[in-house]
Every structure is written in structure tokens, then in C-alpha cells.
Design a protein around this nucleic acid. Structure first.
Lengths: 281, 281
DNA sequence: AGCAATATGAAATAATAATTCCAATCCATA
DNA sequence: TATGGATTGGAATTATTATTTCATATTGCT
């Protein structure tokens, strides 16, 4: 292996693109495959990759050698490293920032930490969202007469934004607040023709759980946003989402929850519009 | 391999945690290593992993078999699949989903849009934050007797989270809500020894601006979070932050504002703790 | 068209890695 | 403390996988 072998994925990618024109047909074929399916290169065997790309294993090795590697194995390392880095970068960065903040590295570190926590959470949820559950939740909420929004304490900001958005979309909704102490009455109005969005994270506010239970027993369908399958909310919910928010300095990010909440809200609005249009036609 | 072999990482993880107590010493050792270093399991060879974990390769295979796999290789597949799923890179996924959305695929695109908007906003603010203003704001808020939090409508969720966090940090604060119609009285209590965090974005809620004006005239210092230098809030503020939130489907992300708000809050808490310590010493 | 250089396919071989096996050790129990 | 069963270590074996080799095909050039 000479000294200018690309050892990181981006350099490798650039090198391949640059030489693309001058590569022989089969080598070009495997090159294109490599850039299109980097994960397969990272995990596959020379034989399996070659088969998927429609070439011989030997071609794959020649490709690696043309790039300056001494074989497929060394080339594969670059693709594996890429996966490793991608995955760890956020978490590691967050860990570093936490450590920095703890040793009193100034206020900028705190800010960076919250930004990183939010990014991590978003990154995480965008991979995890269960699309089927999402569609179910939208369908369920779209046909509700009134959407009740239930959340306490830490989750309350999310609930208030949902309520705001529902209002803007002209969807009848009711935020279940504790302030006036009239929650019980408010809840008693909910019927099976309505629906509830309930949000609660560990440590679960007992009031939220209790209210969810009552609503559940009234037969009102519940969509829950919570943080684990062991959440007491999950047992009452028709559909539930697990959202893992990263935390920093003891405060959990709300960014992923917010994104999910907004997406739900807007999607419900859209579905209702579509339904309305159909009914007219 | 029998039918109840965990085939996704989360199930596998749960299974391991559940059986942890009943595992023999060396098996437990490799089990702990696996959960702590999942990437190594995904990429390594039986020999290299065993060496890192301080056990024999055969133990690693026994571990896999105890879990119901027929060997290390099948176990490793689960760890690889995890990386694949987690990793299908953010951009790639986004591009794919955008394409899907264009051919009329449904609601996933909405979710994706909100995640993208939040990410963009975070990305943007992390470059823009004026560190000097940030320090000024912290200093100003740290010496306040009571921190008033003022926000309406769209910004209200942020205010409620600030209030929640300030409460947890045992910092006296007052959320200026409109519900009871007692805002005017509440505001009249604010003195120059207090401070205000005011949040408002275009279109600025007239009530928020009006209240900010009154407070300003009472000589109470204001820290504003808003979206442009032309914001009517800016003229009343001692320190103000410009936060550019990306929007999607007509709803602005709150992620950057939230991150800034949390950072401010926690930094204020920290500064107070430091000041308290010094005073004692 | 004919020749040389290059590229490709397929099978043989070499290397590497997973798995098995068996002896040694540990641990609980009588 | 003796005994049986479970657990572990380490080498032997087997399997898998990368690489090399060589015959064949293709391409570019005069």
C-alpha cells in the first residue's frame, strides 16, 4: 500500500469519482455499486458483494488494488470505519460536551450541549419512527370529534404547542390543564368518538397516568408519546410512540418529541382536509 | 435456531438484561462487553472480540448459543443489522423519502420535514450564537430576584419549559400567562431588581409586545429571544438574541429556541451556584 | 486486419476465522 | 472434603473467505 491510499471514506469517494471515467467497465461497475451500497461493502463478503454487483470476486479485488489498497480486506476497513464514525460521532460529541460542562468549561459548552442533545434526539427518532404506527395514529386522530391533549410538567410544552397548532388548523381540541382543578370534569366529557394525545416521560407524572387511565376506561382511544415500552402510558394506548430524547445537564431535549407532535398534528389536518374534499365530491 | 431467537437488537438487549443474573461468570462478562461495545461485536472477529473482552473465542460462541443462536455468526448479524438501520445516513434517508413523497407516498414526508426543519435550525443557531450576548444575558438573569417569563401563542411552549426548568433549579420565577386575565397585576410587581425573558416571533403577539413595553418602562431589564433586529421586542431589550427557525407546513420549529432557552436557564443556575459558593467562602 | 496490451472469468490455493472437542478447573452439595 | 455437574481454556478441526493464477476474451492501435 503506498502512502496516498485513501483511508477515510470521503477521500475514497472523491478518488473514485475522479477516476470514474478512466476505469475499465467491470471495475467501474463495482465502483458504482460501492458508492451506492456502502453498507453492503462494509458487511458483505467478497463473494456476496461481487454477486450483488454482478462481477467476479477477483474484479472486486482488482478494484481495491487499483485504488492502492493491497486487497479487498483493507478497502473494506474504510467502509466499516465510516459506519463506526457515523454512529459514534453524535454520542461521543455529546459525552465530550457533558464532561466539558462538568469541569466548568464555561457557558458556551452548556449551549453546545443542548444543541447536541437536540441533534442526537432528532437523528435518533428519524431512524426509529414506526411508519405504520404513525399512519394508525393519524387515522385515529383524524376521525376524532375533539382531540384532547394530556401532558404534565416536562411534557407540557409539547402539549401546549400541539394545542396551538390544532387551533390554527381549526381542529377542535382541549388541553387538559391542571391549573383550574377542573380536569376531572373536563375528562368526563371525552367520549369514544373523541381521541387523546397523551405525552409522558419517566418519571411519569402520576396525575397524567391516572387521567390516562380514566380516559381509557371511558373507551376513548389514546395515542401516547412516551419513552419506553415499560411506560405505564403504553398499556392504555391504542397506538404509542417510543421517543428517546437525549438529555443534558439533567434536562431532556424536547426536539424529537416536538417534531413528532407537529408531524402528527399537521398530518391529521391534512387527512381531514382530504376527507372533507372527498365528501363534497 | 428455535423460533424465539431475538432477531432485532432491542429484543436481544432486553433478553440479555433479563438473564444477566443467571449467566455464568465468563458468559456474563462477554454479555456485558457486548452491550457496552455493540460496534465491536458488529465488526470484529470472534477471536478479536474475545480478546478484547478477556475471554476465549469458545466462550463467545457459547454465549451466542445460550441466547438461542446457532453460533457467533448469527449473533453478529443482529449487531450488524442494528448498525445498518441506525446508520442509513440521515441525508440518504432524507433524499429517499423526499423522492417517495413526490410520488405521493403520504405522511412520512411531513414527519421528515419537521425533523429537517429542526435540524436546520439547530445547525444554524450553533454557528450564529453571539457568545458575548450570551454571557451578558446570563449575568443579567443570574442576579435577578425573580425571573419573569413572557411569551404568547407560538412561543408559549418555550416559556413553559423555561418556567419548568427554573422551578427545578429552585430559581424564583413567574410565568406571565393570559388565562386568568391578571397579567397587568403580575407585571406591576416586577422591579428593576428582577429580570424578564421575553420570547416573541413574527407575527408578534400584540399582548406580548405591550407587556414588554410596560415592563421596560418599569425599568426591569429584558432578555429577548426573537427573530430579527426589527422585532419590536428588540427595542425594549437589554440583550437580545436573533434566532432563525426554519419552518415547515406553516409551523416554525422551536428546536433552536428551546436549546437556547435551556442553555440560558441552566447557565443561570450554574452561575448562581458559583456565586453562592463564593459568598460563603 | 493483426498484434499487443489490457481486462475478465473461473477455478485453484492460501489465509483466516468459526466451531468443536476434550482435558482441566471450578463450584455447589452431600 | 469428596463427588458430580457445570464451566472454562486451549488446541485441533472444519468452514468460510480472500487472493492468486492462468486461460480466454476484449480493446486499442498501427
Amino acid at each position: 500500500m503506498d502512502e496516498r491510499v485513501p483511508r477515510d471514506f470521503e477521500t475514497l469517494r472523491a478518488t473514485i469519482l475522479e477516476r470514474r471515467q478512466s476505469l475499465p467497465k467491470r471495475i467501474a461497475q463495482i465502483a458504482a455499486y460501492a458508492l451506492d451500497n456502502p453498507d453492503d461493502i462494509a458487511f458483505g463478503t467478497a463473494a456476496s458483494i461481487a454477486a450483488s454487483a454482478g462481477v467476479q470476486p477477483s474484479t472486486l479485488i482488482r478494484f481495491a488494488q487499483q485504488l492502492g489498497f493491497d486487497g479487498f480486506t483493507s478497502l473494506q476497513l474504510v467502509f466499516r470505519e465510516r459506519l463506526r464514525e457515523r454512529n459514534s460521532s453524535y454520542d461521543e460529541r455529546l459525552a465530550a460536551l457533558r464532561a466539558k460542562a462538568e469541569e466548568g468549561a464555561g457557558h458556551r459548552a452548556i449551549f453546545d450541549g443542548f444543541v447536541a442533545a437536540a441533534s442526537t434526539s432528532l437523528n435518533d427518532i428519524s431512524g426509529r419512527l414506526n411508519e405504520e404506527h404513525f399512519e394508525d395514529a393519524i387515522a385515529l386522530l383524524a376521525k376524532a370529534e375533539t382531540i384532547y391533549v394530556l401532558a404534565k410538567r416536562r411534557s407540557y410544552p409539547v402539549a401546549s404547542y400541539i394545542a396551538y397548532a390544532l387551533g390554527k388548523l381549526k381542529i377542535r381540541n382541549q388541553l387538559i390543564e391542571s391549573a383550574a382543578g377542573l380536569n376531572a370534569e373536563m375528562i368526563s366529557f371525552a367520549s369514544p368518538r373523541d381521541a387523546v394525545i397523551a405525552i409522558s416521560f419517566s418519571p411519569y407524572a402520576p396525575a397524567a397516568i391516572e387521567e390516562a387511565r380514566v380516559i381509557f376506561e371511558q373507551g376513548v382511544p389514546i395515542v401516547a408519546i412516551t419513552d419506553s415500552s415499560f411506560s405505564p402510558l403504553a398499556q392504555f394506548a391504542k397506538v404509542w410512540f417510543e421517543v428517546a430524547e437525549a438529555d443534558f445537564a439533567g434536562f431532556r431535549s424536547l426536539s424529537a418529541t416536538m417534531a413528532l407532535a407537529m408531524a402528527l398534528t399537521v398530518a391529521v389536518g391534512e387527512k381531514r382536509r382530504d376527507a372533507g374534499r372527498k365528501r363534497k365530491a
